[in-house]
Amino acid sequence: MWSWVAHRVTGIGIFFFLFAHILDTALVRVSPEAYNEVIATYKNPVVGLLEVGLVAAVIFHGFNGLRIVLVDFWSKGPRYQKHLFVGVIALWVLLMVPFTIRHLSHVFGG
């Protein structure tokens, strides 16, 4: 139940980010100056922390989506769905720790 809520909330969040992400990337077609100017406004600690949140959402949604697929198609999926969820959280932590360290040292270390 809560994994479903989290899957839904992260899905909606990623989707709205994607609109903004495609529109700002489209600025490369306007001019290098226009693109660099907008990207420069993202290079601050607040956006840096939001980026960590976004990646956290994507990683959760991705691994949890894989879990949904396994529950639907793998004959033993439904029986092990709780274990699979533990796996999702474990993989999420495993990727988030190095990512957060590296990303925040880029953001705060200049």
């Binding site: 490369v28 290098p32 660099n36 990512f99 590296r102 990303h103 880029h106």
Partner: peptide, 16 residues
């Protein structure tokens, strides 16, 4: 985000 200078490398030249 992880390779090279990560997010700091991002600009027009990177995308191009």
């Amino acid at each position: 985000l992880m390779t090279g200078d990560g997010i700091n490398a991002l600009d027009f030249g990177f995308v191009a």
